[in-house]
Simulated scan of single mutants.
Amino acid sequence: MDKLSLTGLLLAIASLVGGSILKGAGLSALWSPAAFVIVIVGTIAAILLHTPPAVFRRAFQIARWIIQPPASDRDALLAQIMEWSNIARRNGLLGLESHVEGQRDPFLRKGLQMLVDGVEPESIRHMLEIDVGGQEHADLAAAKVFEGMGIYAPTMGIIGAVLGLIAVMKNLADPSKLGHGIAAAFTATIYGIASANLLFLPMANKLKSVIHHRSGEREMIIEGLIAIAQGENPRNIESKLAGFLH
């Protein structure tokens, strides 16, 4: 679990709630069904028009990575690659065949299988890099869904505020409704700006960070498998891959 992201979400809520209370507006000032419909539903509507269905589905599949990113242990991965390197050096590449089925990661299993099958190193690199590039492209497109929501939400907040002020203008003859109406109008602006800057844009950036980290781990796997395929000395492989640990 990513404790920093969880802390950030809790602090975002606390900043809005605490700020509203400390400013004397109270919690009721933060709740407006009309503002919610205009800003949140409107933002979702805009992003649905903006995004292909497959990308939208992928976006909400990877949203959990903000709190619970994919497991990653590069030290353990390095140790695993070194074990394979030593086996290949002693028993040849076919000695790794028994390790293929035990790999839960499809990418790692595919690379190890190609290694066992005696595929040329450059062909291994080419095929695995296509997989990495394709997956990274798809995941970054999904992350940009939240970035798009962060762009649309403030504009929807302005639309909500304008609609609220229009309603206020229609009630100028009744001064008792003016204060409440103006406050309600600006609630939409809060929804738009706060959701964009405290939720959607940070989510997009966090997902991009996780995606780049995963791609870096995949690059480490590729370099390790290629080095084994080329018969490099295990100590040299360890030195080469150590750079990925930083």
Score class of each variant (00 low, 15 high):
G111V: 07
L201Q: 10
M114G: 13
P234D: 05
S5R: 14
I182Y: 05
R64H: 11
I226V: 14
M114P: 10
M149H: 05
G164W: 07
G164F: 06
K110T: 08
H50S: 10
L207S: 10
E101W: 06
T155A: 15
Q103S: 09
L9T: 00
E217P: 13
L245N: 07
S176Y: 00
G26K: 11
E83L: 15
S15F: 15
N233H: 11
T51P: 14
P234Y: 04
D174H: 06
A14K: 01
M149K: 01
I182H: 01
L96G: 06
P70D: 04
P33G: 14
G118E: 00
A173K: 11
I40T: 12
L49F: 12
I124D: 02
E223Y: 05
I193Q: 12
V17S: 02
G118K: 14
S209E: 14
G150W: 05
I13F: 15
A196L: 03
E97F: 10
N205F: 10
A184T: 08
H180L: 08
K144A: 03
S32A: 09
H126N: 04
L22S: 15
L163V: 00
Q80W: 00
A242W: 04
I13T: 04
G150T: 05
G111D: 08
I159Y: 12
I211V: 08
P33R: 15
I166G: 05
V116G: 09
H99N: 04
L78D: 00
L140S: 01
H50Y: 11
R74G: 08
L16R: 01
N233G: 07
E129V: 07
G150P: 09
I182F: 01
E147I: 08
G160F: 10
L78R: 02
Y152E: 03
T187I: 02
A204S: 15
